[in-house]
Design a binder for these strands. Sequence first.
DNA 1: TTGAGAGATATTGGATCCATTGGAGGCTTC
DNA 2: GAAGCCTCCAATGGATCCAATATCTCTCAA
Lengths: 239, 239
Amino acid sequence: MSTHPTGRNAALADVQPAGPEPAVAAPAASHRVAAFLREAILSGEIAPGERIRQEDVAERIGGSRLPVREAVRMLEAEGLIEYETNKGARVPVLGMREVDLIYQMRERLEPLALIESIPRLTDAHFDELGDIQAQIEQGVDVASFLQLDRRFHLLTYSLCEFDALTSMVIRLWNATQHHRRMFMALIGSGQRWVVNAEHNLLLESLRRRDAVDAERYLQGHIRRTRIELSRHPEVFDRT
Amino acid sequence: MSTHPTGRNAALADVQPAGPEPAVAAPAASHRVAAFLREAILSGEIAPGERIRQEDVAERIGGSRLPVREAVRMLEAEGLIEYETNKGARVPVLGMREVDLIYQMRERLEPLALIESIPRLTDAHFDELGDIQAQIEQGVDVASFLQLDRRFHLLTYSLCEFDALTSMVIRLWNATQHHRRMFMALIGSGQRWVVNAEHNLLLESLRRRDAVDAERYLQGHIRRTRIELSRHPEVFDRT
DNA sequence: TTGAGAGATATTGGATCCATTGGAGGCTTC
DNA sequence: GAAGCCTCCAATGGATCCAATATCTCTCAA
């Protein structure tokens, strides 16, 4: 197992193993609540369309409603929840066209993050990426695949040092997390060899530090997934 | 004077003349505070690096600190302010590389918004765009130019109905507002004929509904501005 | 049976209070 | 005179209270 490369980007901390704890101030409670809600939404514990009651969250967190309110405002600005005055927050229900557009945004933005990251990637990163890909190829279950795939891609962007870009990329991933899970559960591991081929081609071009090839493979990877998704409208069924 | 086209996108409401007031709920105070702060930052009233004290804002708004705190969280998530726990909020100071990257993000995202918008644009929009461009060509001052230029571009995106995209575009504009103002003040109206040419080419391709040409002109317009900006490092001097 | 309306309940919006933290300024000490 | 420490003040973090709004429910009448 390779040593874990050190990340530079705070927004990508979740794909970076926690090194020795840096002397950074503890985040305010509102940030912890936001992280808690983010996780609950991404894991599917809170489903799209479901309402989020501030008091419930406050109780589960063990605090007052105030940090929850701040967290809700943050997630609202992130686009992870919808908010109506006096009516509260709920997880948005995205249709196919919206998800398709988010994938188009990813097609355009993620290559940029990759290009910024490539020159700084180290052998340790390539080893780690290889390890992740090896795990994926062992045929893991859907939940593990989603986690490893996310980790794989975000790791390739991890040395892009621009928070405005990396946080945007993460938000786009987050916004479609639910649909990705539905989609993978639907197709199972059927087409997973395509993903493996694409990941390996991408990784190979990264090792060569060939930004042109890497951008092409990455964009194709996202684009193919987008088109595949559009062929499965049942993913967007609101039942 | 053309009638003002009706916009569909809430995020672009600021470039759409306010029609008959829709029966929409009054925004919560936190949103009004956020709009107030946004305007203060974009206008330069609050300069980059300057600290924002919650009590001051609450006093100017005539409310308590609570809505201000929520607004600060929103603007933090928007990237318009930086926040440190227990230390408060301040307007970030962006360096040349960061602004350059934001322009690269714009190069990739704004054509997407334009492509989505083009099929729905009406003659009324083209007339309005022509009016704006005519005003620009009369040689207005820097402040008016910035306002008209913003209005011109955002109007071309106004019929893109995806909030995730349009709000992102607006945030990218907002993030570099200060540098755009510095830059324009620096070069005066010297190179403005280039902008005029680009705007007219873009507008012409829009009238033809030629998405390919429009995307090319728009991307070139942003890219040229980015490179021009990179030739004026004095815009980023922190004095 | 169903629809409308009034009242009850639940939830969010805002203000105020107190605790905690950061920082400025003065003081001591070497 | 400068570095380090301590104290005080200012600003933020969080909890609780009350008001305003929305939502649910029960009743009553068509």
